[in-house]
Amino acid sequence: MSEKEVKNLEEIFEARIARDEKIEPKDWMPEKYRKTHIRQISQHAHSEIVGMLPEGNWISRAPSLRRKVALLAKVQDEAGHGLYLYSACETLGISRNELYEQLHSGKAKYSSIFNYPTVTWADMGAIGWLVDGAAIINQVPLCSTSYGPYARAMVRVCKEESFHQRQGFEIMLKLANGTPEQKEMAQDALNRWWWPSLMMLGPTDAESVHTEQSMKWKLKRKTNDELRQQFIDQTVPQADLLGLTIPDPDLKWNEETGHYDFGNINWDEFWQVVKGHGPCNKERMNARVGAWKRGAWVRDAAMAYAEKKEARKKVSKAS
């Protein structure tokens, strides 16, 4: 194809997206669109399956049977969501194995919030309330993103996730209304998860490299800073309801803007964690790589068995 022809196709392509048409796997797409989507969808998928680990850490210690089944079901959902997203990514011509290799080699990124440790039961509440809360803000607009398989996966994810945040908030509510020790546990969890949750919505617009292109392709509908403001505005009243204090002395309602003003985010910490130096980056990667390696003989066995069975079928048909 000549450069001119490609340019022509690109214009038609951009016009389709502008008209809100969906792009499907076999449609022509610019290489950059494919690559950007592989990167974003796989990062999203990786975040789901690495995100299983900090919560998985408390399944065996959940304090009641009711909490245990809810947490198990939630972490299981995250595996499901990872699976839906990997499947969406595979329609772009890359295999799940290749995506795993990118994750395991450190080439691919995942949400840096999962590199923080879960140290008390209240962290299960804080993660559900804050981390899932921030995730939902990010994810809901993606249900109408331009790439069909991604949009469909997100519809399913959002539908299933609706119980996740409620699960977390309920845990917080119980703790906040419990004994002084429990309330303190809840406050401590809020203190530790608040700032990472704000960071989770991504670097400030000034530093965000992909925003403009992503907006065009409907991979993003609002900027990181807008999403962050939305998250803060909706979360502050919830903290009030819990009787917990958000750990930001500069947080206050601004009558003029109709939003909360908030203090400076420690972006050095954010970049440190993104670059692999968070408290649990190593543990998380070891857990993922370890599970994959330990599972190799199992996956091979299943494949070998399937091939034998197929061969036997052929022999019995031939005779």
């Binding site: 399956i49 299983m52 065996s60 299981q76 595996a79 990872g82 599970a291 599972g295 199992v298 996956r299």
Partner: peptide, 20 residues
Amino acid sequence: GELCGHGPSLETDIAGTNIS
């Protein structure tokens, strides 16, 4: 439940959790 998140494949992981 101890195995949730550590299975040999995502599909098998989900299946094991269902049994749990």
